[in-house]
Design a protein around this nucleic acid. Structure first.
Lengths: 149, 149
DNA sequence: TATTGTTATACTCTATAACTATA
DNA sequence: TATAGTTATAGAGTATAACAATA
């Protein structure tokens, strides 16, 4: 509690870290889009497919997870469904609800997507186990000690 | 060099770190889009404006920095120019080139954008100086010790 | 000929509002 | 009446291909 600014201006070190985080974000995104493109998917399609590969979800819930309007989900699921990667199922409990679920083929594509995400390997390859533990702790604290989502 | 896999499957710790990085990326993006929206800018417009606030750039160079096709830059600059935040200037050295440059008003918006980026303060606020130094080192090594871009 | 920026085109993602079928 | 999903619409970003002006 040393700086008397109303807004608290970030110091040099903090700015450096923020820049580095920006670089990580940029790189992560590039590689994610690349991996998606390798499977002829857009970023949004890849994210939706990955979500569904864990469990079937109502369209509404899908929109919440993707942080977009429900009307958008319709189109994304439409395109994945046209490719046979996803299907819509009725919800026995509520006839208004449609559950989106991956097909077998979709599950395979989701797996391939996950595996072609180089980010899981390369950038961390240079770090020792001890350093990874350290990084994990720092990132957790940055994110507020809560495992988000 | 212990795992005899062809592809090398990431271990538990690595996967955890990758997930955390994913969470950081998601949060960074949300906050960036929010900050942009506060100034009635889209993400792409905000990125382009931020770039130009450092120095005027040819349309071509701008496309390289944004990692998109030059034809897209035309539209983004059009919209920023319509709002008076950016202008096109001739390049005295090459009459084919158009230099995009921020206006005074654009410079102000870019500054406001930078300041409303909470990511520079909040998430790092919980870390001590020593921890930030440690995080900086780890992120640098992750990014290959090269300060990218 | 090669390069710079633009235009034309088509597709995807996005939000908003209005609609339908259920609840 | 409230909710789930869809449709209609419009704007923005994206890539590709073709083009005019300049090098």
């Amino acid at each position: 509690m040393a700086t008397p600014h109303q807004t608290r201006r970030p110091d040099e070190l903090t700015l450096e870290v923020v820049d580095l985080i920006g670089a990580v974000v940029a790189r992560y995104h590039e590689e994610y889009e690349e991996a998606a493109a390798e499977h002829a998917l857009t970023g949004a399609q890849a994210r939706l497919l990955s979500l569904l590969s864990l469990e079937p979800l109502p369209m509404r819930k899908l929109a919440q997870r993707l942080r977009c309007e429900p009307s958008n989900v319709t189109g994304i699921v439409d395109r994945l469904e046209a490719r046979g990667l996803v299907e819509r199922r009725p919800d026995p409990a509520d006839r208004r609800v449609k559950l989106a679920a991956v097909t077998e083929e979709g599950r395979g594509v989701a797996r391939g997507l996950r595996e072609s995400l180089r980010f899981a390997r390369e950038p961390l390859a240079g770090l020792s186990e001890e350093e990874r533990v350290s990084l994990r702790g720092l990132l957790r604290r940055m994110l507020g000690d809560v495992v988000p989502r």
